[in-house]
Measured scan of single mutants.
Amino acid sequence: MQGVVKVNSALNMRSGPGSNYGVIGTLRNNDKVEIIKEVDGAYEIRFNGKVGYASKSYITIVN
């Protein structure tokens, strides 16, 4: 499943599905991501070869 990031500035990509996990990357508006699955209000995603988590509130599914 594919998604597009929709933010005003940037969205943190984290090592786990919550803000208490470390930041492993930054997503920008209109970045395209692969959605692997939904976990606790976040999506597990793949972006630029990395797998991490981002809030589903800022990712629009575009299948």
Results as ranks from 00 to 15, higher is better:
residue 43 Y to V: 02
residue 62 V to E: 10
residue 60 T to H: 14
residue 7 V to F: 06
residue 11 L to Q: 09
residue 42 A to E: 14
residue 23 V to H: 04
residue 56 K to V: 10
residue 58 Y to H: 14
residue 47 F to Y: 10
residue 14 R to V: 08
residue 49 G to S: 06
residue 26 T to P: 05
residue 28 R to L: 11
residue 40 D to G: 12
residue 43 Y to G: 01
residue 3 G to F: 03
residue 27 L to P: 01
residue 21 Y to S: 15
residue 31 D to K: 01
residue 1 M to V: 13
residue 61 I to E: 05
residue 62 V to I: 14
residue 26 T to N: 06
residue 22 G to L: 13
residue 41 G to Q: 09
residue 32 K to M: 14
residue 23 V to Q: 05
residue 34 E to A: 08
residue 18 G to E: 07
residue 19 S to W: 12
residue 53 Y to G: 01
residue 30 N to D: 10
residue 51 V to R: 08
residue 38 E to W: 04
residue 8 N to A: 12
residue 44 E to G: 02
residue 8 N to W: 06
residue 5 V to D: 01
residue 34 E to Y: 11
residue 42 A to V: 14
residue 7 V to P: 03
residue 63 N to C: 13
residue 42 A to P: 00
residue 18 G to L: 04
residue 62 V to Y: 08
residue 53 Y to A: 01
residue 37 K to W: 06
residue 20 N to K: 11
residue 42 A to Q: 15
residue 61 I to M: 08
residue 17 P to W: 06
residue 20 N to Q: 13
residue 50 K to H: 08
residue 4 V to W: 05
residue 53 Y to T: 02
residue 56 K to G: 04
residue 19 S to P: 15
residue 20 N to P: 04
residue 14 R to P: 02
residue 39 V to W: 10
residue 45 I to W: 00
residue 59 I to S: 00
residue 25 G to M: 09
residue 44 E to W: 08
residue 27 L to H: 01
residue 15 S to E: 11
residue 9 S to L: 11
residue 27 L to R: 01
residue 53 Y to K: 02
residue 47 F to A: 07
residue 40 D to R: 09
residue 50 K to C: 08
residue 17 P to M: 07
residue 36 I to S: 03
residue 8 N to S: 13
residue 54 A to S: 03
residue 4 V to L: 10
residue 43 Y to I: 02
residue 54 A to V: 15
residue 41 G to Y: 08
residue 38 E to M: 07
residue 16 G to L: 05
residue 35 I to Y: 02
residue 62 V to S: 09
residue 51 V to C: 09
residue 59 I to C: 02
residue 4 V to Q: 07
residue 49 G to L: 03
residue 60 T to W: 13
residue 42 A to G: 07
residue 49 G to C: 06
residue 16 G to P: 02
residue 11 L to G: 05
residue 20 N to A: 10
residue 46 R to M: 12
residue 7 V to D: 03
residue 14 R to L: 11
residue 41 G to D: 12
residue 23 V to F: 05
residue 45 I to E: 00
residue 18 G to I: 02
residue 35 I to C: 02
residue 11 L to M: 10
residue 20 N to D: 13
residue 46 R to F: 11
residue 44 E to R: 06
residue 17 P to L: 08
residue 46 R to Q: 08
residue 16 G to A: 07
residue 22 G to Y: 11
residue 44 E to V: 11
residue 10 A to M: 14
residue 46 R to Y: 12
residue 5 V to T: 02
residue 36 I to P: 00
residue 42 A to T: 14
residue 52 G to M: 03
residue 33 V to A: 01
residue 2 Q to V: 14
residue 28 R to F: 12
residue 55 S to Q: 11
residue 4 V to A: 04
residue 12 N to S: 11
residue 15 S to F: 05
residue 28 R to K: 13
residue 57 S to T: 12
residue 27 L to I: 05
residue 60 T to A: 11
residue 25 G to T: 10
residue 41 G to T: 07
residue 52 G to P: 00
residue 59 I to W: 00
residue 35 I to H: 00
residue 57 S to K: 15
residue 4 V to N: 03
residue 11 L to Y: 03
residue 34 E to L: 12
residue 58 Y to R: 06
residue 34 E to T: 12
residue 55 S to V: 09
residue 50 K to G: 05
residue 26 T to L: 13
residue 49 G to A: 04
residue 19 S to T: 12
residue 51 V to F: 08
residue 58 Y to P: 02
residue 52 G to T: 01
residue 10 A to V: 15
